[in-house]
Design a protein around this nucleic acid. Sequence first.
DNA 1: GGATAGGATGTTCACGGTAACAACAAAGAA
DNA 2: TTCTTTGTTGTTACCGTGAACATCCTATCC
Lengths: 359, 359
Amino acid sequence: MRRTTKEKAAATPTARRGRSTGRPTIRDVSRLAGVSRMTVSRVVRGLDLVLPETRDRVHKAIADLGYVPDRAAGSLSSRRTGFIALMLPTLTNANFSAAAHGLTEVLRAADYHMLIAYTDYSIDEEERQLRNLLARRPEAIVLTGWLKGRMASRMLLAADIPVIEIADLPRQPIGHAIGFSNYEVGRTAARHLLGKGFQHVGAIAGSNEGDVIDHRGEERMRGFEDELRQAGRSTDLVIRQGNAPVSYGHGAALVPRLIDKKIDAVFAVSDLSAVGVVMECQRHGIRVPEDLSVMGFGDFEIGSVINPRLTTIHVDFKALGQRTGQLLLQLVNGETTLPPQRIDVGLRVIERTSVRTAG
Amino acid sequence: MRRTTKEKAAATPTARRGRSTGRPTIRDVSRLAGVSRMTVSRVVRGLDLVLPETRDRVHKAIADLGYVPDRAAGSLSSRRTGFIALMLPTLTNANFSAAAHGLTEVLRAADYHMLIAYTDYSIDEEERQLRNLLARRPEAIVLTGWLKGRMASRMLLAADIPVIEIADLPRQPIGHAIGFSNYEVGRTAARHLLGKGFQHVGAIAGSNEGDVIDHRGEERMRGFEDELRQAGRSTDLVIRQGNAPVSYGHGAALVPRLIDKKIDAVFAVSDLSAVGVVMECQRHGIRVPEDLSVMGFGDFEIGSVINPRLTTIHVDFKALGQRTGQLLLQLVNGETTLPPQRIDVGLRVIERTSVRTAG
DNA sequence: GGATAGGATGTTCACGGTAACAACAAAGAA
DNA sequence: TTCTTTGTTGTTACCGTGAACATCCTATCC
């Protein structure tokens, strides 16, 4: 020790004053190591301004006490929380969790922590969750919803942090946007099926009633219908029924109506629903794709496993998450002057065997 | 205003001193509403000690400024962060995310926020992630792994917060435990298949090599093998191959070996792997269950959709998450004297049609 | 030898809230 | 009337850390 610190030592180290808990703080470490709190702080943050000998003494004290720095206190002082907020409709969708996964991967390396909230497709939850997230002072926020509320926008504005909207590319982005067009997904699906020569092209999606709303699915249907109209076809075979999030059961339940309507090719709003259709068809002795062609969206793993393998539309959600992470890092590391980015990660049809060539 | 506050007003409200950012703070609200910061704090927390007239004035100021309280600052002072930490192996497993979902649901109502970290089945990540979590000062922590490291235990101890281990019931719980026995899963599966009269009973699981380890799957295999031995059967037909987390491809890839070994009933470590087996069998013209009976674990939704529907073992992960949430709330609300709980949520065989009755 | 530069460490104060307690007014009790 | 109680609001002092700046020491240079 080159110098004696003037930091006052408590008469009894065990005597805790005020509101403090029993957890070791930076002060305990500093006393044990015989240095100032600031020196400990420097060691903890790996600032490399400290003599190796001192550093080792501090590290030993940290290990002895099982000290873990309090990031809440740290961020209060430094104005950097190391949080990135992420708002999702649900955790139980493989594509969203793939995006979250890609995001986390990139940010983890930079010592950022994702703060995840999800709304279960409920609009009311959105504002509540947003407030909760912002209260943690994230350095940036990633949204998947279409934030509508006036109060929500006000809060986002006051928060004054970078905003990235992912998954669906909004027409009027709040800040940056990385994703793809669900509208184009619908158009692409319709174009693909029409191109195969089908006469009775239908689609199945959830209906949007009450508080639970799936904008993304509805966008896909809009695109699908527009493409149908443009080709001079009727949109009567587009069926909306059941609530988001749709799953296997959704598709299975709609098979009777598909038969009723004599549909020969159907686009399902999600691969899960499409798989449900295929499996239910097997039970009814309806051959896929001979009697009914089925196309999905999302390229969920299960689609590539079933018989026949599912034709679908692929979007690389993990890459989407990773790109978001990279942009995020640029933004929080000072490149605040970056003009609003709008990145379309695109989509592509994966042709497998659940769609035949007709006519 | 009944009294004039002595809180010093800045000469120029816009002039920011020190390190502060542009975001409105409780002080800005207090000035605008003409009350003390403490009064604002009471209104924000809904403490109902404030005159309605004053409360309204404060609410208006909050709305005007778009003020969102800083929870980091609040928790530093109150010693309550409102965080519950959750460590998972992965987010992309439907059962784990169901548990996370159930947990979040319960805690959300009590204004707690889940802080999620996941390790991707890597041991090295575990300690790093644990440190990151503890740095946020969660009021309790929920673990799914088997924490091994000495340092990890030291940190957990120093954190001095309730610990709940979920999913797998450990032999020596650190604190509380809610879950089921993966060992029993294996035994139950073996018993079920043996009870059906099969002669060549096998199983497929991941192998545990390198840093990536799936304790849970291995436990199931241990139980399976023990039951086999106890029945005087050979365990030669238990195949370990591929890394956790296993998915559809795992099962599909192992079908040739199942044929090779003339296995007539197989237990897959996970439904996903089992579904892979079933689908691949269809491609090879192997009939399920006539030629090969298949049993899975986890009761994933897809299992109830495929043909034939998958016989499996069900554990109610969502309920598991909810019960964890309820216990958590008891623990953080003062019931610290609660003796260590050990709750077995049990498991049950779901008989469907992928397993036949033999001999 | 004295001035200067730079490395290692220390001190002070602010970050944005809240616990604890104090102060004061109005209403009720003795 | 005076004392006590109750309800509302304010003041003070922290919570644990980091930014900014200060200080001390050693090495180097002319």
